[in-house]
Design a protein around this nucleic acid. Structure first.
Lengths: 221, 221
DNA sequence: CGATCAATTGAAATCGTTCAACTGACGTGG
DNA sequence: CCACGTCAGTTGAACGATTTCAATTGATCG
């Protein structure tokens, strides 16, 4: 992660502020510019024909995106107010001739992104709604977790609709799944932008009727 | 596509034959080798915890895969008997220092793969079963289409289970969807490894009761 | 403080899944 | 060359998770 950050320092980049909701680039546009996210959260997405939207990835500070030489194959939008540094892809490549490690780092990041997406697909196609959520929150905890994993406190930079479109659920389903997880004690909500995981990184064996917190205080029978 | 093929000629590669079903590499393994597919069909996949499997991509002759420097983030398996040329990733990279266009081509291919997967996700999460199939067949026609698109004839290198796992359907659902498409006249089957699309690249507005072939020969009313 | 958009809740409908049984294709060995 | 076993694909019926539609509550920002 830190490798490339220093390397790109040698490439002239322009620092930009973008407001929440702003489109950074749109699918089909010619490429040429790439970005490093400095603060905030960005989403990559595919906009379907019927107004459907699939969010492919949430990006967090330190991550690079838009590294591509022909047409944009996804759209990028600001989830929150963000700061990015914008580079000309051409210049990054020129620099990489002198510094092979830049190429290596770019490749590593590309294949990492691919792997994340691959697993994302596997999860959203094979897990029921509430397990998708648990998986998502644990993933957030590991990635966006500035606070440290142990506490289980997650500040959500995105709204529920974004989460729904990331997990391929309807907002109503997300809402119900959240409630169920809250009721069963897997998580607690503080406002609707903060979630507290009770058991971070648990692979939950949740079946209808199971109760997590109940163990202590619900009388048997 | 042809760009890189000539470039890799300069890198020593070993030609291999692999039998159908053989694992080329497995998720979690250290990387170091990359491949060009010469003949046959390869699948990239993620194997879920419950024995579930999500096929991420089908690859066809000319395509590169396994371009990655740390751990494998997906598995690769031979869908049919295949021939591949195996390269040491390190040597490809060394070559790329002298030839910047190699880097560019590798980047293009990586981002193309990412885009394909992104759209794949969008489709399998937003389309009903029979439209996924139509989309898949049209996609096959464009990619594996050695015959030329116009005829609509598709030789399937993979079995129905592979297709089901690619489209995130159960075999039963796939079977039923296929039958429905056959009945409504969108496609015909010759054996179970050949499919003929009646209207290649149609965005079908199929609703229960609609008939495609009926227009010409079914009397009104 | 009101307007607007996001999130919640309920009830009904739908599509895909599940389970189970059956059919068909294919390859092996007699 | 045929019989058999095995595995892939098919079909039916019941089930269930998610979606849909509709109405309500709740947040957020001028």
């Amino acid at each position: 992660m830190t490798h490339l950050d220093s390397l790109l320092e040698g490439v002239s980049g322009r620092r930009l502020r973008l407001a929440r909701g702003q489109i950074i680039y749109d699918e089909g546009e010619p490429s040429g510019l790439m970005y490093r996210l400095e603060s905030g959260c960005v989403r990559l997405q595919v906009n379907g024909e019927n107004g459907d939207r699939q969010i492919i990835a949430f990006l967090f500070p330190g991550e690079l995106f838009g590294f591509c030489l022909d047409q944009r194959n996804t759209s990028a939008e600001a989830v929150s107010d963000v700061e990015v540094t914008r580079f000309m892809t051409r210049m990054v490549l020129e620099r990489s001739v002198a510094r092979p490690d830049v190429v290596i780092e770019l490749i590593n990041r590309s294949s990492a992104l691919y792997g994340v997406l691959a697993h994302h697909v596997e999860k959203i196609t094979h897990l029921p709604s509430h397990e998708r959520l648990i998986w998502f929150f644990n993933w957030l905890l590991r990635h966006a977790g500035g606070d440290g994993d142990a506490s289980g406190v997650i500040e959500l930079p995105m709204n529920y609709r974004d989460i729904a479109d990331f997990l391929s659920l309807k907002p109503e389903t997300l809402s119900r799944a959240l409630k169920q997880l809250e009721d069963t004690g897997y998580l607690a909500r503080r406002g609707q932008r903060t979630v507290v995981l009770r058991q971070p990184s648990v692979t939950l064996p949740l079946r209808p009727g199971d109760q997590l917190v109940a163990q202590a205080d619900s009388p048997p029978g």
